[in-house]
C-alpha cells in the first residue's frame, strides 16, 4: 500500500454519541472522526454497535446524546435522504436492491439526485429528461466499466449470485459520487476470490475518486490489509483507534477478541 497523498482534514466528527433502544445501550459515549480520503474500518464482535454507528452517521438513527459535525458544522437530526444530499452513500449488510430491475436501472437510481427534470418531462422522455438521462447513462457506464460488470448490465438483479449483487450495490452507492461511502460488511458470505476482487474495487474507488470510505468488516485479514485506520468497538464502547499495527497490539482489543486471562 502506498500513498502519501492521503488523509486530509476531518470531514465528519462524532462527539460523545450515546444511542439506546429502550434499556439496550447500543452505543455509549463514542467519539470518532473521519478524515477526508481515508479508508477507515470499524471492527468489533457481533452486537458491538458497528451498524448502529453507520446508521447514526447517515441519519437513520438519531442518538439521544452527542453531536455529529459534518465539515465543521454541527448537524441536527437529519433524514437519510438529507445525508445523501450531503454526499454520504452506503451499502447494506443485507442487500437492498430492486430485484426485478436490471443492473443498469438499479445503478441509474443511484444517480437520482443528479436529475432535475420534472415528472412530466420524465414521463414523456422529452427535452431535459432525455438529455439528462443520456449524460447520466454515460456516468453509469463508467461505473459499470470500473466495477467490471459489463456482462450483467441488462440482467435483472434477482437472478444474480450474491457476490455480484453486492458489487451492484456498491455500484449504485458510488453512482451518487459520494464524498463519504459507508460499506456495511461488503464481503460477508464471499469466497476468497470474490473478497479479493471486492478489496481491489474498494481500494480503487478510494484511490481513483478520493472517496472517503468507512468500512465494517469481520475478516481481520482484509481489514488489516486495506485500512488506513481501524476503530474497535465492543459492547457499544470504543476500545481502540489507530493504525492496523497499533490496533493489533492494543491489549484491550486483544482481550475483546481473544478473552483475557484473569
Amino acid at each position: 500500500m502506498n500513498p502519501q497523498h492521503k488523509t486530509g482534514d476531518v470531514i465528519l466528527a462524532a462527539e460523545n454519541i450515546s444511542l439506546s433502544f429502550g434499556g439496550v445501550k447500543a452505543l455509549t459515549d463514542i467519539s470518532l472522526d473521519v478524515r477526508e480520503h481515508e479508508l477507515l474500518s470499524i471492527i468489533g464482535p457481533n452486537g458491538a454497535g458497528k451498524s448502529s454507528m453507520l446508521n447514526v452517521i447517515n441519519g437513520v438513527y438519531h442518538p439521544q446524546q452527542g453531536q455529529v459535525t459534518w465539515r465543521g458544522k454541527p448537524r441536527g437530526a437529519i433524514h437519510p435522504h438529507e445525508a445523501a444530499r450531503m454526499g454520504i452513500a452506503r451499502t447494506f449488510q443485507n442487500i437492498a436492491l430492486f430485484k426485478g430491475m436490471s443492473v443498469l436501472d438499479n445503478i441509474m437510481t443511484g444517480r437520482n439526485l443528479k436529475m432535475h427534470a420534472n415528472f412530466l418531462q420524465q414521463a414523456l422522455w422529452w427535452g431535459r429528461a432525455q438529455r439528462e438521462e443520456m449524460a447520466q447513462r454515460e456516468k453509469v457506464e463508467q461505473i459499470i466499466d470500473f466495477l467490471e460488470i459489463q456482462a450483467i448490465r441488462k440482467t435483472p438483479v434477482g437472478r444474480l449470485p450474491y457476490g455480484l449483487q453486492k458489487r451492484v450495490e456498491l455500484a449504485r452507492a458510488i453512482a451518487a459520487e459520494p464524498t463519504l461511502l459507508l460499506l456495511d460488511e461488503p464481503m460477508a458470505g464471499m469466497n476468497v476470490e470474490e473478497k479479493q476482487d471486492m478489496c481491489r474495487f474498494i481500494l480503487d474507488i478510494n484511490d481513483a475518486f478520493g472517496t472517503t470510505i468507512v468500512l465494517i468488516e469481520h475478516d481481520m485479514g482484509v481489514v488489516m490489509d486495506i485500512s488506513d485506520r481501524v476503530i474497535v468497538l465492543d459492547y457499544g464502547k470504543k476500545i481502540g483507534d489507530g493504525t492496523p499495527h497499533d490496533v493489533r497490539n492494543n491489549p484491550d482489543v486483544i482481550a475483546a477478541y481473544l478473552g483475557t486471562r484473569h
Binding site: E138, E141, I144, D145, Q150, R153
Partner: peptide, 8 residues
C-alpha cells in the same frame, strides 16, 4: 477494428 467502450 471495433471495440465496445462504455456500452457503445
Amino acid at each position: 477494428l471495433r471495440e465496445k467502450d462504455l456500452g457503445i
